[in-house]
Each structure stands twice: as C-alpha cells, then as structure tokens.
Design a protein around this nucleic acid. Sequence first.
DNA 1: GCAAAAGTGTTCTAGGTACACCCATGT
DNA 2: ACATGGGTGTACCTAGAACACTTTTGC
Lengths: 222, 222
Amino acid sequence: MPFPTETGRAVLTTNIVVFSLRDEQLKLLLVRRRNPPFQGCWALPGGVVGEDEDIEANATRKLEEGTGVSGVYLEQLCTFGDPGRDPRERVISVAYYALVASERLQVRSDAHGEDVGWFALAELPPLAFDHAKMVQVARQRLAAKLDYSTIAFQFMPERFTLSDLQKVYQMILDRDLDKRNFRKRMLAMDQIRETDEVRRNGSHRPARLYRVANPQEVQIIK
Amino acid sequence: MPFPTETGRAVLTTNIVVFSLRDEQLKLLLVRRRNPPFQGCWALPGGVVGEDEDIEANATRKLEEGTGVSGVYLEQLCTFGDPGRDPRERVISVAYYALVASERLQVRSDAHGEDVGWFALAELPPLAFDHAKMVQVARQRLAAKLDYSTIAFQFMPERFTLSDLQKVYQMILDRDLDKRNFRKRMLAMDQIRETDEVRRNGSHRPARLYRVANPQEVQIIK
DNA sequence: GCAAAAGTGTTCTAGGTACACCCATGT
DNA sequence: ACATGGGTGTACCTAGAACACTTTTGC
C-alpha cells in the first residue's frame, strides 16, 4: 500500500539555536557554511535527518557534534518550511533551541578555527536562510520561560552565587533587577540550595555558593 | 548544485486540531479514514502539503475544506516525525490548532454523513497515528493561552452575554469560575464592548449583549 | 408571587515593587 | 581606612479569591 502521492517529498533538517553564557554575555553558536547556497555565511548548526533517525535525536546529535556536550536542555521551537527557503529544493527545518552551561563546553568549538563561533545576540552577523527568524522566535521563547520555569538554571555551573544567577536573568531579560527582590523570589521558589562553600573573588566579602536542587529537570512553576 | 544527500526525503503533511463549541461542549472535528493504514479509524483533518505550497497555507486550506470557514485563528503547535509513525514511509506532520466560532460553521461538516464528526474531548474515539498526542498538546496549549491572551474570544459569536463567555472559559478549563470575579476580570482587560442590546431567554431578567473589540486579533495580555 | 438567570461590592490575602544601609574582605 | 561587591527587611500596592443578596423578567 504505497503512499497516495508521488509528489511533495521534502528534505528534512533540523537547526538548533544554542544559547550559552560566555564572557558575561548571552551568546549563540554559529557555524560558517562551506558550501552553497550561502557559502561562507554564518548559519545555525543543524543538518539533514537520517532516513530512520528521530528528529529530536538528530538535533541532539548535531548539538553534541558542535559543542561536545550531551544531556543539555533541548526543546522544539517551530517548523519552517516555506517553499523557496532553500533555493535547491523543498527543505523542511524543525528548529530547536538549547541551553548549555558554559563550563561544560569543550574547547573543541573554538579549535575548529573560523568555522565555529560564539556571537553575542546584539552582534549577530547576517544569517543564512531564515535562521534570523529562528533566532528571534527562540529568544522570545527563552525570555517568556524565565517567568514561569526554572529554565535559567540550565545555564548555571555546579556552584554559583546569587549574583551570578541575577546576571543571567538580567542578560536574558535585558534589564536590571532589584537585588533584594530577586533573591527573595529565587529562594521562595525553593529550587536552589545553599552550600556551605563561599567564593572569594577580590577585595570584598566572599559570596555564598548555591547549587540547583534538580539540575536535570526544568520545572514549570506557579 | 544538488542537495548533498539523496536519502532522507519525507512526505510532508499537516494535521489540524479544530476546536469548536457545540451543544455547550468543547468539541473536536474528526474525519474517518477511508484508506489504510487505520482505515475506518477517526483522525485529525489534514493532508499532504503540495510541492510548492506553504505549510500553513495547506493547513488553512484543509481547515476550510473541513469546516467551510475561512479566516479562523490558526497556530502552529508542534511537529511530529517519528520514523515509523506512518507504516508506509517517513511522514512528517506539522500539527496546527484552530478555533472556530460554532455559528460560522457550515452544515457541510454534518452533510458528509459518517465521514466527518464533532466529538467532545471526553468522548474521543481511538485516533489514528499519533493524533491523540497532538490533541493532548493542543489542549494544554489552549488552556494555557486562556490565561494570558484573548484567544477565547475566537469562539464567540458576534453578540454574546457574559454568561456565555464564562461558560466557554469553564469548558476549556474544566472547572467553575466565580461569576463576579470573572466579570470584573473580563471588563478590566478592556477587550469587549457593551452593546445596547439584550437577549431575552426564558422567564428571567434579560442579559446584556457584548461584542469583541478586536475580533480579528488575538492579543497577548499582561 | 415565584422561579430562574442577570447583575453587583467588599474584604482578605499574597505576591510584586520600591527602597537604603551594614558586612566582610583585600589592599 | 577605604573601596568593593555581598547580604538583608519593611512598607506599599495591586491583583486574585472568597463570598450573598437584589433585579428583572415570564408564567
């Protein structure tokens, strides 16, 4: 029993908007295209989904190839499939976004030389295909999820200070937050735990270190 | 410059979770499959995307074919593409959900006889493929959007009472709401307008009729 | 006059926001 | 002793939740 149409087959791909915090900035992982179309242009990592490969598994695999990291938070974002978005033929791209703690990143990403790079959101180069649109949607989704989930903890290293965490929120939301209110809210949601360690860092009072209570899960709160 | 792979092409389809309020219940539009696989089984409306057809345009078209209604609210939900979700070959389905005011529905949907039907959410028959999962995701999304958007107004006819509107919210959220608080909240968001008409409906006080201020747009509020 | 749905306000609580000073350390 | 970032509490305000009675009509 064949499929009732012989037309309309499309190439299936994924693209991943990989966020990470580097140099105190929210950055994206981009790769430079080696082949046409958009040769030499920066683009989101991703690739063609194998014949018997699960779509999300493909995204996970491409992410691991690009960052050397496994077990990161990955969520389906949106699917792009305009005819003509790829000049060669019909290509469907399922876009994902991912959050990686920078401490987990391998040097590998940089070792590739000019072909892989991290770019601050405000300084993105022109992107291939409709990837700029994907980035925009991902950014909105990320900012929205800050409000009602523990997604921001995905960026945090094993041990971190409340000031570290506040900087993360401020970078994503792109505005300053009140220190006292922020701490109150973070502690009230009961998702981070005080450790008995502190971090000494310059000529001032050391900062208490915290850890995420459930580092694996992203909880929906409230 | 051909695409660098000859494998991995997939059939591209859409499926639409069409919600409407009928008989004071939240119902879904289903169609009965005439061909294998899942012959005779109920499934979500949808179909194969044409070679040069936009994906969302395909969903709109299939929705119009099933309901006779155009200009309805339609939003991309999620993409399903497990290898093996269709036994014939690799099929990617981009799921959408749509909200239709029941007054706008043509009789056509019923005229097809047994092939098209509206089913209450609590009484869905077994569904083909992974359509049950699509319904579940759509339902969650719809309930979530009630809280922070004007999406519920998409179900409302030209003129309606606040009691009508409250029933809609109660059906979607599946719980009772306080009448006074509900009215206060609805009026506070300033998205519906009082008309000078009332509806007489039985031996009791007539109800004031309202209209939606911006029927076309779904606004994100708060 | 009675049954039935429409309509209307107040109180309480919780969460968010605004806001300023002391603490512990290194130099 | 001073510069630096870490750490803390209170007052206010707003939004949401709980809650009961009067109004208008048809019969």
